[in-house]
């Protein structure tokens, strides 16, 4: 195992998949000669050249649409959005073209594209740059949505996303790019639709995705150390497809659940999970399913306050104590 940064785990996934399949192309703003706005693609342009790693103009609708059109003819583009927030500019291409073309053609056309980039708040860049779209996008049949929290997950999921024949929306996090994690030397893939129990526990299930899964882990340590509560942490890793079985198995064991995410509360991913749990695990529950999201307001700039807008370990501890 090597200890590497989340960004380098992604970088390895790109390099390995580009070696394997000549149809894999990286495109986006600053991904080639500048090495990527967050250096996720560093070195790849030198290694693979301008045909495989392409800088695009600042035209999200145009280049995302170009990638979708190319994927219809069998190219496998991996498109970087400098921020997932900018997907708003390419929304039509993602929602109306990538997601619908297979269906509307009666299955004649498919769209093996990966659209990726950071989707997170917490970096004091204000509301326009801090959106989380995973709940919006998971609402669209035809799209897949993946949100890895660790270097290991990022690499394994990215390799699967690139090989997947459907459009995959891959959400990274600028706060995690520099985080190090153990990544095996040998090749591995992580399937989409498989959750990961990141901490085993017996008293409550903390279910989360993206960076919130790491926040949940910190909360679980506090709960164990200070409150004698043994929490299980289930990281969904992918939102759609969803590993419903893993969630149910955990809740059937612990009988309590809190969902934690950095999305906003209204129709957040946690709303879907809470609804599912009351429907499928009602008799197993000893308490209502609670949810923690980002505070329901646009992302505030003020650095001290923004920290409070996102879920923190103590917010989770407090919620857990209300039902344990």
């Amino acid at each position: 195992m090597a200890l590497i940064e989340y960004r380098d785990a992604l970088n390895q996934a790109f390099a390995e998949e580009m070696e394997r399949d000549p149809n894999v192309v990286l495109m986006g703003e600053e991904v080639a000669e500048y090495d990527g706005a967050y250096k996720v693609t560093r070195g790849l342009w030198q290694r693979f050249g301008s045909k495989r790693v392409m800088d695009t103009p600042i035209s999200e609708a145009g280049f995302i649409g170009m990638g979708i059109g190319a994927s219809m003819l069998g190219i496998r583009p991996v498109m970087e959005l400098m921020f997932w927030s900018f997907a708003a500019v390419a929304w039509d291409q993602i929602i109306n073209n990538a997601a619908q073309v297979r269906y509307m053609s009666g299955g004649l056309i498919n769209c093996p594209i990966v659209i990726r980039g950071p989707a997170n708040g917490g970096t004091n860049v204000g509301a326009t740059h801090s959106h989380n779209h995973e709940n919006f996008l998971a609402n669209i049949p035809g799209l897949k949505v993946v949100c890895p929290a660790t270097a290991y997950d990022a690499k394994g999921l990215m390799k699967s996303a690139i090989r997947d024949n459907d459009p995959v929306m891959f959400m990274e996090n600028t706060l995690l790019y520099g985080e190090k994690g153990e990544v095996p030397e040998e090749e591995y893939l992580i399937p989409l639709g498989k959750a990961d129990v990141k901490r085993e526990g017996t008293d409550i299930s903390l279910i989360a995705h993206g960076r919130a899964a790491l926040t949940a882990l910190k909360a679980a340590e506090l709960l164990a150390a200070e409150h004698n509560i043994n929490a299980e942490v289930v990281d969904l890793r992918s939102i759609r497809p969803l590993d419903e079985e893993a969630i149910l198995a955990s809740v059937r064991k612990t009988h309590r659940a809190v969902y934690i995410e950095e999305n906003k509360p209204f129709c957040g991913v946690g709303a879907q999970i809470a609804s599912m749990l009351q429907e499928k695990a009602f008799d197993d529950l000893d308490a209502p399913v609670l949810r923690i999201s980002s505070m329901d307001a646009p992302a505030i700039y003020s650095p001290e306050l923004e920290k409070k807008q996102l879920p923190r370990p103590l917010d989770i501890v407090e919620k857990v104590l209300s039902i344990c």
């Binding site: 649409g65 170009m66 979708i68 219809m72 073209n97 509307m104 053609s105 056309i109």
Partner: peptide, 25 residues
């Protein structure tokens, strides 16, 4: 024949992408 698109001009980047794929290949 790649459609048939209901959003006005939504097909214009797709057409670019089809041609990109031809060139790439």
């Amino acid at each position: 024949y790649w459609g048939g698109h209901g959003i006005v001009a939504g097909q214009t980047p797709l057409g670019l992408g089809l041609a990109f794929a031809l060139k790439y290949k």
